[in-house]
Design a protein around this nucleic acid. Structure first.
Lengths: 145, 145
DNA sequence: GATAGGCCTTCCCATCATTGGAAGGTCAAG
DNA sequence: CTTGACCTTCCAATGATGGGAAGGCCTATC
């Protein structure tokens, strides 16, 4: 099947399939005499694997490791589990960061009258008036990113 | 003061200060006769404002709006609050997405023996065996990104 | 057999925020 | 007057994705 159909069946855009091939995440697809890429059912399964892993937030690099384990019939499930747990840990870290942001913002927004007057604790906080943020003790240097 | 010192005092790198100036987020800094950018205490305060807003996850575009409101002494705090609440909503959306990912991954990882055997529900799920994910009912199409 | 339009190819560019580096000018201290 | 730390501009890369142009291929219809 052509790349468009593979894209439709896998949920990975044709653009991204070419990109994954170019970066070596997936092996080069077969080609017709006229240069069209061709895909088999197995290829589509691999693409769906990638799609699903992306949906779980894995970065492409980690997906490469997952694919390698997938293909390795003598893999140790411990290695797969470790990748999953690293992913969980990374997600949890980001969640904690974001929850801290939400807590701060929510606190500030609650203190904001939200009317036509200019006074606003949100701006006051951004300006550097840390006293208005106190209760949450939200973050220190190097917190973002 | 020079850009390096402004960077140190604001927590925004010199690179980023130039970038913010280039993209119009901040006005062009003054220059010495020899072309060095010069910054005042007010400038540093503005940079700290930006830094703080970044720490709260605001995108640069939103920071531009916040800065405009900050400078506008006849602003309505409602406008500031609205930006903050949009930011909160965006963060909460991402948190929910990530929590869903964590729930799925955690469920899968718990079912994985994590030893030297190759069988692994994590890979089975990525492969498309949705039956192993059932309980969480974690996501539908168009979930990621 | 010609033509239309839908698919494919490669190549380049843009995003967003940020970092890195190169090549060269400036400043201050020794 | 040299040295080293700073500054300048310009260009490139990141990661994952989308957009588009220019051109080739394929198939159905006339």
């Amino acid at each position: 099947m052509n790349i468009g159909e593979a894209a439709k069946h896998s949920g990975v855009s044709a653009k991204m399939i070419r990109y994954y091939e170019q970066t070596g995440l997936i092996p080069s697809a077969g080609r017709t005499a006229s240069g069209y890429r061709t895909y088999t059912g197995t290829d589509v399964q691999m693409l769906r694997f990638i799609r699903r892993a992306r949906d779980l937030g894995f970065q492409v690099e980690a997906i490469g490791e997952l694919l390698a384990l997938w293909r390795d019939r003598s893999r140790h499930s411990a290695d797969v589990k470790q990748l999953a747990q690293a992913q969980i840990a990374g997600l949890r870290r980001k969640i904690v960061e974001m929850e801290s942001m939400v807590a701060t913002l929510d606190h500030l927004a609650q203190g904001c009258s939200g009317d036509d007057r200019p006074d606003c604790p949100i701006l006051a906080d951004l300006e550097g008036d840390a006293s208005l943020v106190a209760p949450a003790c939200h973050n220190g240097p190097g917190f973002n990113r």
